[in-house]
Every structure is written in structure tokens, then in C-alpha cells.
């Protein structure tokens, strides 16, 4: 056997250091993440009262009923507006504007780029645009409608991207099969292609909703804030949870501090529910895909996961 020389020792040290550093990196990410969740819980739990969920916000404290409802209404509105537009845009990018070559001139290339740029647009800038154009320019005032439009514009690119990615993972054979069976393009799209891409689309929608319910900055500029739900789409400020966290945590009264922590906890719970739901959707479809393939469960090659939002290096 060879005696380890200086070079071998150096290589061994470097590889052990590398292994340790990767674990340390993981720990440095997971530690604060866990601390964050525990801290939110620890701040909210001691004073938690379930009545927060169904009492109104009053000048002396009260609950967060209308703020929770407001956040849910915003999510529903974003789901309807951005969901429809985003999914349609994704269908266009993946199915209708199919590029002729992979690296050649894609007909949807320009539109895709503009959608990607919009995805990277700072939310506060969109909020300012909403404030200038909708709140002031169209005289809507701080309102639900302005907030919905700006939030929708914010998440449409995201939904379009995830829809496009999951449509691209539908095998071409499905489309050809649908066509060979004499289905019209629209019918085939609806019954075959969209159906098999649905889990990915739903996942994207859920994650977009998670983004929408956690936004603060653009909402301050478009929705304002109100203690109770208004009765009109425009001319009335709108309540939502994130503002409570942002502005109540350093309010002079302690009961407002508790409300801020409660709101933070509720937000985290909503986001967790959305993420778990998206996980369940993914897990179910993976099981279905496997049973369709008839492969043994333990020898699956690698879970199919959506591509990252980047052009990947190709072999």
C-alpha cells in the first residue's frame, strides 16, 4: 500500500472540509428558517385567543375577522383574474405559439421575455404605478379593484410560466394521439393536454396565491387599509392581514402588538396550507403517473419536477 503523501493528505482535508461546509451551509439556512417559524409561534401563542378569528377590529383591539376575510377575498379575486389570464397566456406560450426550432426564432419569444421581465419587476414599482394610474388617475381611490388588478399583474407571469412548463411536460404523443383520433384542436387541448397538465397548473396557482396573500408594499399603495370590509369595489379602503403586521408591531398599545403577531401567525398558516396542498397535488399525480406506467414503486428513476425558470444548459 502507498503511504499517503502530502498531496493525498491535502486532498483528503479539502474534501472533508467541503463536506463539512456543505452541512454548515444547510444548517445556516435551516436554522434561521426554523427560528423564524418558532419565533412567530412563540410571539403569538401566549396571547392567542380564537376569538381573533371572528371578532372585528376595534380601536381598543378586538379581532381580525375582516382582515382575514379581506385577504381571502384578495386571494379569490387574484385566483379568478390572474388564474384565467395566466393559464391562457401559458397555453399560448406552450401550445399555440410553438417555436419551430428549440434555439431558433420562437414566435412566442418576445412575449415570453416580456412576461419574464414583468415577473422580475419590483412589486413596489407596480404598486406605485397602481397608485398613480388607478387610485389617483382614474379616481378609484384606495380600493379593492385597484389592489386586485395590481396583484394580478404581479402574479400573471408566474402562473403563465408554471402553466407553460407543465404543458411542455405533456408528451407530444398525447397531442398526436388526440389529433389522430380526429379531435379538433380545441377539444384535444381541453380533454387531453390540459387534463394531464392540470396538476402542474394547480400547483403554480397555489404558489401564486401564496405570493399574493403575503404581499404588503403594493397593497399599501393600492388598497390602503380599513378596519372593516367595505361594500364597494372602488372608493373604499380595503382590509388585509399583512398591513396589520407591518404597522401594528410598534404601535404604542400592547393589544395591537398581539394583533400583529396573530396576523403573522395566520399568514404563515395560510401559506403553509397552500404549500402543503400543492405538495399533495404533486404527490398524487406522481403516484398516478407511476401506476399508469406500471413500474415498480421503489425503482422510480427520478421524480419529475418542473423545470426551474431558467434556460438550462442542454447536452
Amino acid at each position: 500500500m502507498l503511504a499517503p503523501g502530502p498531496s493525498t493528505r491535502r486532498r483528503r482535508i479539502s474534501t472533508i472540509t467541503w463536506r463539512i461546509l456543505t452541512y454548515v451551509a444547510l444548517l445556516l439556512i435551516m436554522g434561521p428558517a426554523a427560528w423564524l417559524l418558532i419565533s412567530v409561534l412563540a410571539h403569538a401563542a401566549p396571547h392567542w385567543q380564537w376569538s381573533v378569528l371572528w371578532t372585528k377590529l376595534t380601536p381598543t383591539g378586538g379581532g381580525l375577522r375582516d382582515q382575514i376575510l379581506g385577504t381571502l377575498i384578495l386571494m379569490l379575486g387574484v385566483f379568478l383574474i390572474a388564474g384565467t389570464i395566466g393559464v391562457l397566456a401559458g397555453i399560448h406560450l406552450a401550445e399555440l405559439a410553438r417555436p419551430h426550432k428549440r434555439s431558433g426564432k420562437a414566435s412566442g419569444g418576445f412575449l415570453r421575455t416580456s412576461s419574464d421581465i414583468l415577473a422580475g419587476f419590483p412589486s413596489i414599482v407596480l404598486g406605485y404605478v397602481g397608485y398613480t394610474a388607478l387610485v389617483v388617475g382614474l379616481h378609484w381611490g384606495f380600493s379593492l379593484l385597484a389592489a386586485l388588478i395590481i396583484l394580478s399583474i404581479m402574479v400573471i407571469p408566474y402562473i403563465a410560466k408554471t402553466t407553460e412548463n407543465s404543458l411542455r411536460q405533456v408528451p407530444t404523443g398525447y397531442r398526436e394521439g388526440a389529433e389522430a383520433l380526429g379531435m379538433s384542436m380545441g377539444y384535444g387541448l381541453r380533454k387531453v393536454v390540459l387534463k394531464s397538465a392540470l396538476p402542474g397548473i394547480v400547483t403554480g396557482l397555489l404558489l401564486a396565491l401564496a405570493i399574493a396573500c403575503g404581499e404588503t408594499a403594493p397593497l399599501i399603495y393600492t388598497a390602503g387599509f380599513a378596519p372593516t370590509l367595505p361594500h364597494s369595489l372602488t372608493q373604499a379602503q380595503f382590509p388585509y392581514l399583512t398591513y396589520v403586521v407591518y404597522s401594528y408591531y410598534n404601535a404604542p398599545e400592547t393589544q395591537y402588538h398581539y394583533l400583529a403577531f396573530d396576523a403573522a401567525l395566520i399568514l404563515v398558516v395560510i401559506v403553509l396550507l397552500l404549500l402543503v396542498a400543492s405538495r399533495i397535488v404533486v404527490a398524487r399525480t406522481q403516484r398516478h403517473a407511476e401506476s399508469a406506467r406500471g413500474s415498480v414503486r421503489r425503482r422510480r428513476p427520478r421524480p419529475a419536477r418542473p423545470e426551474p425558470d431558467l434556460t438550462l444548459p442542454r447536452r
Binding site: 439556512i29 435551516m30 434561521p32 428558517a33 419565533s39 403575503g214 401559506v271 397552500l274
Partner: peptide
């Protein structure tokens, strides 16, 4: 752990801000 990373991505930034200013 990968799911935990996803959760971290989904935490509203205002909650992270709250933790940052009061605790971290």
C-alpha cells in the same frame, strides 16, 4: 428539507421583517 426551503420561500416578507426587527 427541500420542502422547508420551499416554505422559507413562501413566508411573507412582512413576517420575515417582523422577525428580523424584533428577534433576529
Amino acid at each position: 428539507l427541500g420542502f422547508a426551503v420551499e416554505i422559507l420561500a413562501g413566508i411573507p416578507s412582512v413576517v420575515i421583517g417582523l422577525w428580523g426587527i424584533l428577534t433576529f
